[in-house]
Nucleic acid binder design. Structure first.
Length: 878
RNA sequence: GGGCUCGUGGUCUAGUCGGUUAUGACGCGGCCUUUACAAGGCUGAGGUCGGUGGUUCGAAUCCGCCCGAGCCCA
């Protein structure tokens, strides 16, 4: 036991325990034989250097789950990875060093990226530590480490059947100069200009088309109309000349054309969008690529060659106008596909790339095996999966990523993929083990410079954390327990992981996906610098302490819901923490090392009540935790600690603790210790620092609260617990009565009389009550010695409703209109009541209503009446 | 355009497989130093549960429509 300072000081406590825990293996996964595994597929965040409060929410949920499952005796693995590869780091490194990535060798550039990433990770780890996450750092992984990306390569090699290298149109970001997957394209609403352009006919009348992309005219390969469109009847097959660029294109019919739009005629370019790709393939059209990889026009654009896309758009429009081909222009709203990393509008280029085949049905099937929380999030995955029409392009024309382990034969162009044994390998530095080309016997290889999509790295996290391939084979893989996941990346991280785990192991990756919402600012808007509503974890911790911030996040809503960060929730949590502190301080002063070992405590009803309540709370909280209802779990614990334990129980047993006889005093001590230690254990997932400090301060409790077990409490029969509850209620009512009277709460009373119709044979235990209210307590039965004045009736709708159906309203009306005193008399003498309802006699059971009585002291007596639900108390002030 | 989620006192939130007076917090008003706690206790005001129509004896809760917010997809 330690002496607790008077005031709750989160800074001191949290710093202290962070230091204590740092060098322990409190959170280590032990791979224990006889304890069930609980393995968490923790998200590997991108190392931006900045762990924001959204991460804070997500990791808080993870930590709640991890700490709860440890209490339940599970062998918990809470690893932490880092999804290092990617463009933003490359850009940052170029910026910081004032270089372009081609200024140095690939190797050197990679090293700079690694160095930068390590700094970013350190800073994020610091915030994680401050928030008190129980991460097992011995299971940390970084996708940029050879030991990890070697696995990414291995997974690539082992999926060889589903990998293909082909030329195919792909989404291309002209700023990042790389292919990107469908999932990395976002739609953004922008205002653009819709140009009406007239094409001269070749031996026929001109035709007008509408386009937002005049700069793609040089890429125009056809014009299409709806086959049903009467305006173009008989014209399909006509030939037209593309203005300014001169190529001749044919008018074709395709039912995908939206006849309602503009003139109903649309130009097909290679490629303006995915629709163009469909038409191009379906009608076997020419390929006229006019865009370069860095977003300029090429020589097919003639005089516009070398211009950027926006420049060319403007210049071509102007030239069309000058040449008399521009019929009209108006502004239009359009959804533009943009690169999710840099917001640059994407293009579609036809390029040789590596692809992974997508089997939509297989993915959906696995997704269905997973429990989604909340369950409607499954729909997002399903919708996305079913809408996929292109294979996943996994090659990227970048540097800082997992190398694609493949070489091209310089002689015959054969592509050779590495064998598992030679991994990890960087094909730009090492030749393949195979030696001569299996196709042509040549020995000159060129290593693939393309690298992998970072989702190739992060979509094998369940395999990695399960110990593949060193400890388990693919076949031995079993789904891990939990995947925490933001709903914004369901189409990527969840989707790809389902795909890859399914392909590699034939299993679902996890049992449960727990989707967290976003964290909004205190004003209810998305946090943004321009709004000035950004709350950083550090600021919040400085203001309220991590224990309070975690609670505020837990109470912000049910998992899956977006959470508005509310300073007042943190305030409220902080007050609760203070309360816990004070309770602990009080308890610690009354308990000693022997308390925990007290045998057969002589419990009184108050003790049985608090322990019974604690048992009930432990069960409810357990259920809520299992259902990931962290909000209701925490509410339940708080309610119990504050109201039952602090307000009621402590007040009831103070007398015994201060001056009780040894046996009775020990019973109170023992019950207090049990209830408090149970509370702290239930609280420990939410407020790990405070719970630990308090647990540590209680004499006789060994070890860390985080190594303790979920509370198991003695069983008491319901009646005993109810009697204790009544004692607590009476004490509480007398307390507020005294407060209302302006009396000191410890003011002495002459006596109180408790009238109760409590059933069962045990009499009310008034020992604690008497000292709590500071008055002798007399138990009475029957009617209090006061006037009972029936003042109304309280009908039981649940019983009258179904019985009388459409007459129920009239019955209740008659009941309420009747004289309460007469009803009371009938109820007591006959056990039922006859009523006149719309001229008909109706018989009501006695329990169909209750007569509400106000009890008034008989005149002349100095007595106050305090009424409870199931008792009436007479207070004699004396 | 399609889909999903949500709308409860000033603010945030619980309750939503129908059943009496709708939960709690923050804030606001009043009263109170009581041997853990004034970062406390007691108490008060404040809600036509987005609107509307329906089902039902009875709707915050179920159904239809409308309005509003947000997200995902096209």
């Amino acid at each position: 036991m330690t002496d607790l300072p008077d005031d709750y000081d989160p800074d001191r406590i949290e710093q202290h325990w962070r230091d204590q825990w740092r060098d322990t293996d409190l959170y280590a996964y032990e791979d224990h034989e006889d304890r069930p595994d609980y393995i968490i597929d923790t998200p590997p965040p991108y190392p931006t250097g900045n762990l924001h409060i959204g991460h804070g929410l997500q990791w808080s949920y993870i930590d709640f789950a991890a700490r709860y499952h440890r209490l339940k005796g599970d062998d918990v693995l809470f690893p932490q990875g880092w999804d290092c590869h990617g463009l933003p780091t490359e850009v940052k490194v170029e910026e910081n060093h004032g270089i372009h990535r081609t200024d140095v060798s690939r190797e050197e550039f990679r090293d700079l990226c690694i160095e930068h990433t390590e700094e970013q990770i350190d800073s994020m780890k610091e915030t994680m530590d401050e928030l008190g996450f129980s991460i097992d750092w011995s299971a940390e992984f970084r996708t940029m480490d050879e030991s990890y990306w070697g696995k990414t390569q291995r997974s690539f090699v082992e999926m060889e059947d589903d990998v293909h290298r082909d030329e195919h149109p792909v989404n291309w970001c002209p700023r990042c100069e790389t292919a990107i997957a469908d999932a990395e394209v976002e739609k953004e609403d922008r205002t653009g200009t819709l140009y009406q352009v007239a094409f001269d006919g070749v031996e026929t009348d001109p035709i007008e088309i509408a386009t937002t992309r005049p700069e793609l005219l040089p890429a125009c390969v056809a014009i299409a109309v709806d086959p049903e469109d009467e305006r173009y009847e008989g014209r399909v097959g006509d030939t037209f000349e593309v203005p300014l660029f001169g190529q001749e294109v044919e008018l074709i019919a395709d039912e995908d054309v939206d006849g309602e739009f503009g003139t109903g005629a649309v130009m097909i370019c290679t490629f303006g969008d995915k629709q163009d790709v469909d038409w191009w393939a379906r009608h076997d059209l020419d390929l006229r690529p006019v865009l370069t990889e860095d977003g300029h026009l090429n020589d097919l654009a003639g005089e516009f060659e070398g211009q950027t896309i926006p420049e060319a758009k403007e210049n071509v429009a102007e030239a069309l106008d000058d040449a008399g081909h521009l019929v009209d222009e108006n502004s239009t709203e359009q959804a533009v596909g943009v690169c999710w990393r840099c917001d640059t509008p994407i293009e579609i280029l036809s390029k040789e790339q590596w692809f992974v085949r997508i089997d939509q049905d297989a993915i959906v099937e696995k997704a269905k095996e997973v429990e989604w929380i909340p369950d409607h999030m499954y729909a997002r995955l399903e919708e996305w999966a079913e809408g996929m029409d292109w294979d996943w392009v996994i090659s990227r024309q970048r540097v800082f990523a997992t190398p694609i382990p493949a070489w091209e034969c310089q002689e015959c162009g054969h592509w050779h993929v590495a064998e598992v044994e030679e991994l990890p390998v960087d094909p730009t530095e090492t030749d393949p083990a195979v030696g001569a080309c299996p196709e042509c016997e040549a020995e000159e290889w060129v290593g693939e410079t393309d690298v992998m999509d970072t989702w190739m790295d992060s979509s094998i996290t369940p395999l990695h954390i399960s110990g593949w391939p060193e400890e388990i084979t693919r076949e031995e893989f079993e789904p891990v327990a939990l995947r925490p996941q933001g709903h914004d990346i369901i189409r990527t991280w969840a989707f790809y992981t389902l795909l890859r785990t399914g392909k590699l192991t034939d299993e679902r990756p996890w049992d449960t996906v727990l989707v967290n919402g976003m964290v909004f600012g205190p004003d209810g808007n998305k946090m943004s610098k321009s709004r000035g509503n950004v709350v950083t974890p550090r600021e919040a911790i400085d203001d309220y302490g991590a224990d309070a911030v975690r609670q505020a996040l837990a109470l912000g809503g049910q998992p899956g819901a977006d959470v508005q960060f509310q300073p007042k929730e943190a305030t409220s949590a902080s007050r609760f923490n203070t309360k816990v502190w004070n309770i602990t301080k009080f308890a610690a002063g009354h308990l000693d090392e022997r308390t925990v070992d007290i045998e057969d405590p002589a419990y009184r009803d108050a003790d049985r009540w608090i322990l019974g309540r604690a048992a009930q709370v432990a069960e409810r909280v357990d259920e809520a935790m299992q259902e990931y209802r962290y909000d209701s779990a925490l509410r339940e614990v708080r309610e119990f600690v504050w109201h039952d334990l602090a307000d009621d129980y402590l007040e009831l047993v103070k007398g015994r603790l201060y001056e009780g006889r040894p046996g009775e005093r020990n019973a109170a001590r023992h019950a207090l210790l049990t209830a408090l230690s149970s509370s702290l254990r239930m609280l420990s997932p939410f407020a790990p620092f405070l719970a630990e400090e308090a647990y540590d301060a209680l004499p006789g409790l060994d070890g860390s609260v985080h190594a303790a077990e979920w509370p198991t409490l003695p069983d008491f029969d319901e009646e005993t617990v109810d009697r204790g509850q009544l004692v607590a209620d009476v004490a509480s009512e007398i307390r507020s009565w005294k407060s209302e009277q302006g009396m000191a709460l410890n003011a002495e009373l002459d006596r109180i009389e408790v009238f109760t119709d409590l059933e069962g044979d045990g009499a009310l235990d008034t020992y604690d009550l008497s000292s709590a209210v500071n008055a002798p307590v007399y138990l009475e039965s029957g009617r209090p010695n006061v006037e009972l004045v029936p003042v109304g009736v309280d009908p039981d709708h649940a019983s009258i409703g179904p019985k009388f159906r459409d007459e129920a309203g009239a019955v209740i009306g008659a009941l309420e209109a009747a004289d309460p005193a007469a009803l009371k008399a009938q109820q007591e003498t006959n056990g039922e009541v006859e009523l006149d309802v719309n001229g008909e006699a109706v018989t009501l059971d006695a329990d169909a209503f209750e007569v509400v009585e106000e009890q008034q002291a008989a005149s002349g007596e100095e007595v106050e009446v305090v009424e409870l639900d199931d008792a009436t108390v007479l207070v004699y002030e004396g």
